[in-house]
């Protein structure tokens, strides 16, 4: 594997509250190579979005990065002053969020927003910026870009707005895109279009993408590798195909079993879904040892006492004591 574009090591994000410090991300390590799409999947509260926010330096106070380091092209970017981080966002890291309206200013036309971003980050003339804005809109699949460039965000449908946001994220040719639930607010037919677009862009531009979502189906469609998060920790990380077809961590296995699938008969003839009992612990009540142990069908004494680190099992790494003595 080539040198990673982004490297996160032992990231820890804390929220001090009056009832003690909540650890929302606890020792997460991951790396993304140029042109690679890394999926980060987990249920609500797993810490996946905060991991993304930490990378783009947008953790809202009083939350803070308490430990670990984040390197972009070998250069540390955690703890940079606000102005410096703001230049990195947009120029070297693009961001796409769930609700496209939060990324677009309702008072300016999309053309103004695009050219402004391009001029701010690239050494071009206004005419070149406009040409680039038109090219970007065409690239993200907006029909008749010349006619639409003067429109305001509210004049676009949800799917088209998300395309505009993607164009905006791409405007300065960033090396990395953080996409946080980019398709969650969209209908399934639009979701399919956005997924296809993201994949094509990563391939054609060699842009690395960190795709944060709760939807394993989107990961399966899009990502090369996947990190499964649980209670602020990475439970398993590896190539998508291996994680989906041969999950190592009992949580991943349970998660895969609990997803209803198409195409194996339908209706009453189907059995019950595999279910993981209970729910993810609240951040103020994460159990000792492995965070998953109260819900784990395969736990043993060690899981209650000691916290497992990621252990390599073939192509995947899983944080599970089952594999402490080699794969079983």
């Amino acid at each position: 594997m080539s040198a990673p574009l982004l490297e996160v090591k032992d990231l820890r994000v804390e929220f001090p509250t009056r009832r003690g410090t909540l650890v929302a991300v606890d020792g997460a390590s991951l790396a993304i190579a140029p042109g690679e799409i890394l999926g980060v999947v987990g249920e609500s509260g797993a810490g996946k979005s905060l991991t993304g926010m930490a990378i783009i330096g947008l953790i809202e106070p009083p939350g803070r990065i308490a430990a670990g380091e984040i390197r972009l092209e070998s250069e540390r970017i955690d703890g940079l002053p606000y102005e410096q981080m703001r230049r990195i966002r947009g120029r070297r890291i693009g961001a796409i969020f769930q609700d496209p309206l939060t990324s677009l200013n309702p008072l300016f036309t999309i053309g103004e927003q695009l050219t402004e971003t391009i001029l701010a980050h690239l050494e071009v003339t206004p005419a070149e910026a406009l040409a680039r804005a038109l090219a970007l809109l065409a690239e993200v699949g907006i029909p008749a870009p010349r006619a639409r460039i003067g429109h305001y965000p509210h004049q676009f449908s949800g799917g088209m707005r998300q395309r505009v946001v993607i164009a905006l994220a791409l405007a300065a040719e960033p090396r990395l895109i953080i996409a946080d639930e980019p398709t969650t607010a969209l209908d399934v037919s639009i979701q399919a279009q956005i997924i296809a677009l993201l994949k094509r862009l990563a391939r054609e531009h060699g842009t690395a993408v960190m795709l944060i979502t709760h939807d394993m189906g989107v990961i399966a469609e899009t990502a090369d590798r996947v990190a499964v998060m649980y209670a602020g920790r990475i439970a398993e990380i590896g190539p998508v195909r291996d994680v989906i077809h041969a999950p190592r961590h009992p949580y991943t296995a349970g998660l895969m079993g609990s997803i209803p699938k198409l195409g194996q008969g339908a209706g009453k003839k189907r059995g019950r879904l595999v279910q993981i009992e209970g729910a993810m612990p609240r951040l103020n009540a994460i159990p000792a040892g492995c965070a998953f142990n109260p819900r784990c069908p395969r736990r043993f004494e060690r899981c209650l006492a000691e916290r497992p680190e990621l252990i390599a099992i073939g192509t995947t790494d899983a944080a599970c004591w089952l594999y402490a003595d080699g794969p079983r």
Binding site: Q191, A192, G217, I244, K261, L262
Partner: peptide, 22 residues
């Protein structure tokens, strides 16, 4: 079209008609 738009969790790589329009 709806059935074709669902992400393929099995990663079977089956051919699908691309979804168009809104």
């Amino acid at each position: 079209m709806l059935l074709d738009a669902i992400p393929d969790l099995e990663m079977s790589g089956k051919a699908r008609t691309p979804v168009a329009g809104e």
